[in-house]
Amino acid sequence: MLNGDTVDSEAVRRYADSLSMDLSTAELEAFAEQFAQQDAALADVDVLASPTVPMLPPKWDADMDDVFGSLANTGPFNVTGHPAVSVPCGTVDGLPVGLQFVAERGDDAAALRAAPSWMALRD
């Protein structure tokens, strides 16, 4: 996977270096695989749409047991550099829900175009 056939392996290495991460070859290959899967998912669409977080927000005074679990839908795109934007989507049990749009790396405009288009549909 790091041979550059489907993923810019140098981008993966630069990303790891920017975080001062000393990654093994296996870890770099895992990053490259994540890049490739997300690029493949976006190959035939303008944007991907998904919930911003995979859970409802906790009550104000409740303990949050799994802080990192709330990043499960946004974190992978932060790692790969795919632009994403989150917009209000409605409510569940009176609690707000967000919808994120994710575009191909380097195509921030596509994600930003999707947001107002979605909002116009809601109005």
Rank of each mutant, 00 (worst) to 15 (best):
N3W: 13
G98A: 09
S117D: 13
L23W: 10
A110K: 05
D93Q: 08
G4Q: 05
A36D: 08
P57H: 05
G106I: 08
G94E: 07
L19M: 14
S86F: 03
S20E: 14
A43M: 09
K59T: 04
G69Y: 02
A111I: 03
D108L: 05
W60I: 07
L28Y: 11
C89F: 10
L23T: 00
V87M: 11
A26N: 08
P88D: 02
P57K: 07
D8A: 14
L99C: 15
G90Y: 03
T6H: 14
F35T: 07
A36G: 04
P88Q: 09
Y15R: 15
D65T: 12
S20I: 01
V87T: 13
L95C: 08
P57W: 03
T80D: 05
L112M: 13
A62F: 04
S18N: 11
L112A: 08
D107M: 10
E104C: 12
P51Q: 08
S18F: 03
V53A: 09
S24V: 11
D46H: 05
D93T: 04
A72M: 10
T80W: 00
P57F: 11
P116V: 14
A32V: 03
V97Q: 08
H82E: 15
L56K: 15
D5L: 10
G69V: 09
G81L: 09
T6G: 09
L99G: 09
D63W: 00
L48Q: 07
A43L: 06
V7A: 03
G98K: 04
P58S: 14
V45F: 06
V53L: 08
M21E: 15
S117I: 14
W60G: 02
E33M: 12
S86W: 07
A16I: 09
V85F: 02
M55N: 13
S18V: 00
D17I: 02
Q37W: 03
A36I: 05
V79A: 14
Q100P: 11
L95S: 01
P88N: 02
Q37R: 12
T80Q: 06
D65G: 15
N3I: 14
G94L: 06
D63H: 10
L56M: 15
A103C: 10
Y15V: 02
A114C: 14
G75K: 10
A84F: 09
D17P: 00
S117T: 12
A30H: 02
D22P: 00
S9T: 12
D44L: 04
A62W: 01
M64G: 04
L112T: 01
W118T: 00
R13C: 01
T52W: 00
T91P: 00
A41C: 12
V45Q: 04
P58C: 05
P58M: 02
A49I: 06
P76Y: 05
D61E: 07
M119L: 12
P88S: 05
G98R: 03
D63N: 11
M21V: 14
L28E: 10
E27C: 02
P76Q: 03
P76M: 05
V102Y: 06
Q100S: 15
D93A: 10
L71R: 14
V79Y: 10
L28H: 09
F101L: 04
K59C: 03
T91N: 00
A120I: 07
A26D: 13
L112W: 05
S24M: 11
D8E: 12
P76D: 07
